[in-house]
Design a protein around this nucleic acid. Structure first.
Lengths: 203, 203
DNA sequence: TTTAGCCTAACGATCGTTCGGTAGCCTGTC
DNA sequence: GACAGGCTACCGAACGATCGTTAGGCTAAA
């Protein structure tokens, strides 16, 4: 088993191991960690349970790797590019857009699978939690920046941060409902809703 | 087993059966349906697994009854009283207040346990879903009423409804974090946030 | 005597995991 | 070109543990 199970060389056919982890992530997202059996995952990729264990080292470790990979992806596709944006409002808008796009189109199910974190041993729980906190701080910091500039109404930044994060977890759960059928519309509405909630009214 | 497992005569010591269901609801809320074993529930009320079956008819049926009871409670404590409020804005404010209060103080975990609905057989899934839809329609209807009166900004009522529901599910999940320590503050912030998001700016 | 309330014991099923084996492919050696 | 050896990717079978559930029996109250 490679050190990072998801990685394969760029522009190359996905490794079998990567397929396994991808299928596992999808199943766990749909049915939850507890309700997803090793047999389910094996069947999804056309293997036996025993065969799976050539690619994985255990069920718990799978969840751990999936969560870490999701955070990796979020950092690569959302956090990092967004940090380059100077204007805090534009930064927040783009953060929401990228995050929602990511959770609808690609894996990026970390917002959804994060609730399964309690199935991990405490040490790994803390590891994941501290990585997530970094992303939370990006949102919170942006809100504080807006506050400094006097551009948002009076609000509790911590609660507002959770409200925004909440939008992500919620939308991820609607992934297969018709409310998510028009992605661009959903994204624009979600951003407009959030901006109206936090920004000072214009007129 | 009585027809409604939670019911006992008013102002009376809770039935043993009611205790069982209450403990089960709490455990399932914390750990999820799949991760909560019959043994866990039995231990929580000081019984053996076999003893539990004097009070319940099965694990799935337990979840079904818990969800139904939660909806009963929500209808009694939130939906019904709130329908009497004429002004749609005040109606929505009070709905949010009662719903959040209920999910923080009392059981009312239907917003949180609703995600476990897929562990039920399809017929019961539909039954729960149709009952929940009634409560959703109260929110959506109130939004439409506000729109008719020209009091909200231009927004997608369906998406806004989900956003509001999303607040409830989110807050239920923070139940044991320090963000929920000051309940009144959390309630006021959540309401203010939502109102700012949907209402037309005042000035 | 009946019944409510709970027990011990065990059932079959399913779970995550391990063990030993094997078919196919790559690689180097003769 | 043949062949031995090793490695990758998988399989069948079984493990012990735990799961939800049931059968049957005990005890105290009505």
């Amino acid at each position: 088993m490679p050190s990072s199970a998801f990685r394969n060389a760029p522009d190359e056919a996905p490794t079998r191991t990567a397929e396994v982890f991808r299928a596992a992530a999808e199943l766990m997202f749909e049915k939850g960690y507890g309700a997803t059996s090793i047999g389910d995952i094996a069947q999804a990729v056309g293997m036996t349970k025993a065969g799976l264990y050539h690619h994985i080292s255990g069920k718990q470790d799978m969840l751990f790797q999936i969560l870490n990979h999701a955070i990796d992806e979020a950092e690569r596709m959302v956090t990092t590019p967004v940090r380059l944006i100077d204007d805090p409002e534009q930064r927040l808008r783009q953060l929401m857009r990228l995050q929602i796009q990511g959770s609808l189109e690609r894996g990026l199910a970390f917002t959804a699978l994060f609730s399964e974190i309690n199935h991990l041993p405490p040490a790994q729980q803390m590891e994941i939690r501290s990585r997530v906190r970094e992303q939370l701080d990006l949102i919170r910091g942006t809100l504080l920046e807006l506050a400094d500039q006097g551009r948002i109404r009076e609000l509790d930044a911590d609660i507002a941060t959770m409200m925004i994060l909440n939008v992500f977890t919620g939308i991820a759960r609607w992934k297969y409902t018709d409310i998510a059928s028009d992605r661009e519309h959903l994204i624009q509405e979600a951003i407009a809703y959030t901006m109206a909630a936090i920004l000072k009214p214009k007129k």
